[in-house]
């Protein structure tokens, strides 16, 4: 039908991938990683599909998906922001950073903004402790986020141009 791999039916993509690897049940976690890449998240339907394909009980898949924090069963925003909650960042004020990002995005950690632009989560040390406190957005590290303005600036890069920032408050230290 269509040769563009980007337009290929995602389930077909996933099946092709599963068919291409030697051990299947043993590679469940790898398969889930791939599925999350394809679908963006792992809804019940995708998990069920994998269960059928690998001939595993769905409950087992669900148990695994719900165990690992990397896997998400909810759709994510276009951009995923992760505030580092590692120890080094914590002692350098990541709690305040987290609160400020939450307030600028108007969501709590673990949630996605209504416009589906941002999801906010936390990570534990990304190895950039020298830049603490840090936040990553779509994998890109933003370090030394010490003032509301720093954060505003970091997030602005991901907002479509011309959107008003939801942030309020003064340009103060957080």
């Amino acid at each position: 039908m269509c040769n563009n791999p980007l337009l290929k039916d995602p389930y077909q993509q996933l099946d092709d991938y599963i068919d291409s690897i030697p051990y299947k049940k043993e590679n469940l976690i790898l398969i889930l990683h791939r599925a999350q890449e394809i679908f963006g998240y792992l809804p019940d339907k995708v998990q069920w599909h994998i269960a059928q394909k690998l001939d595993l009980p769905s409950a087992k898949i669900y148990g695994v998906v719900s165990f690992y924090s990397f896997f998400t069963m909810k759709p994510r925003g276009k951009h995923v922001a992760n505030v580092c909650m590692g120890t080094a960042c914590f002692v350098r004020g990541s709690e305040k950073l987290q609160k400020e990002v939450e307030s600028q995005l108007g969501i709590k950690t673990g949630q996605t903004t209504e416009d589906q632009l941002f999801s906010l989560d936390s990570v534990r040390c990304i190895g950039a402790c020298g830049l603490a406190p840090v936040m990553t957005v779509d994998g890109k590290v933003h370090g030394r986020l010490e003032t509301t303005a720093d954060i505003k600036q970091a997030l602005a890069k991901y907002r479509p141009e011309g959107t008003p920032e939801e942030a309020k408050g003064s340009n103060s230290n957080i």
Partner: peptide, 11 residues
């Protein structure tokens, strides 16, 4: 390397 403040192994 799960220790939330360690990055030796990755380095």
């Amino acid at each position: 390397e799960g220790d939330p403040g360690a990055f030796m192994d990755r380095s």
